[in-house]
């Protein structure tokens, strides 16, 4: 099977609000898939369902041949899905090094082994200069990078990146894209929510467009950008007139 992730009819309802409805898609091994959509489209809800923060009302999620629909966050992480959060969730009571170590301890009890793995991850993620600093003093860009490092240290097969470019300067975005490509080159599949269309178009193999909790379009960046429904959702149909 080439798919690392298969999502079927994913539906999440919060009381009267249908946050996700009938979402079906897959992510192939080694692929980078972008998830775009206007605010409130249900992107983060989808990520929360995929990472076990909450469970689907209906539908199923198959990861690497295992049904993870009803599993908790920590079990899903151990199976190989790492994630970052829209609002960076750095463990501010720990140093940068210790934050990454927490991720590295996911698959081992051996501290020496975990420290070595954490050091390598810190190096890959370009955080070596900040390793001994407390996570509380980092700026937004560094906290986002730290989140990627912690998630990557868990040795994921699939990485869920939730708006890792938001609030970054152009230079920081370039660095972040390089890091994502570097991680992907090591065989990690990536599913990323992103508002920055330049980034999405540049790095994604395919793009999923969500609107009002439903899939509006799935395809290559070129296919999606020329899709009528997507243009209408993003530009309210104004592009034609412009």
């Amino acid at each position: 099977m080439n798919s690392i992730l298969q999502v079927n009819d994913a539906t999440k309802k919060f009381s009267g609000l249908m946050a996700n409805e009938g979402i079906t898609f897959h992510v192939d091994r080694g692929e980078i898939v972008g998830v775009v959509g206007p605010n409130g489209a249900g992107k983060t809800t989808l990520f929360n369902s995929l990472s076990g923060v909450h469970q689907l009302t209906r539908g199923s999620i198959i990861f690497d041949g295992t049904d993870i629909t009803k599993l908790n966050s920590h079990k899903i992480c151990k199976l190989g899905i790492g994630r970052t959060f829209q609002i960076p969730q750095a463990i501010v009571t720990l140093t940068v090094e210790e934050n990454v170590l927490i991720g590295a301890l996911c698959h081992t009890n051996n501290m020496k082994e975990a420290r070595q793995h954490a050091d390598e991850t810190i190096e890959v993620c370009g955080l070596a200069a900040l390793a001994k600093k407390p996570a509380s003093i980092l700026n937004v860009a560094q906290k986002k990078r730290l989140e990627i490092a912690r998630a990557y240290a868990t040795d994921p097969k699939l990485l869920l990146l939730d708006e890792t470019m938001a609030g970054l300067t152009a230079t920081e975005r370039v660095e972040s894209v390089k890091l994502i490509e570097k991680i992907n080159a090591k065989g990690v599949s990536i599913l990323m929510i992103e508002h920055n269309m330049d980034v999405v178009m540049r790095v994604s193999n395919r793009v999923i467009v969500l609107d009002a909790g439903k899939v509006l379009a799935i395809g290559t960046p070129e296919e999606v950008t020329s899709n009528e429904a997507v243009i209408n959702a993003y530009l309210g149909g104004g592009k034609k007139d412009a």
Binding site: I91, L94, L101, L105
Partner: peptide
């Protein structure tokens, strides 16, 4: 280390496999 992580940020800790 895990206890400190839970203390610092339980959501982040859970997402790191704790």
């Amino acid at each position: 280390y895990y206890l400190r992580a839970i203390n610092g940020n339980e959501t982040a800790a859970e997402s790191a496999g704790i």
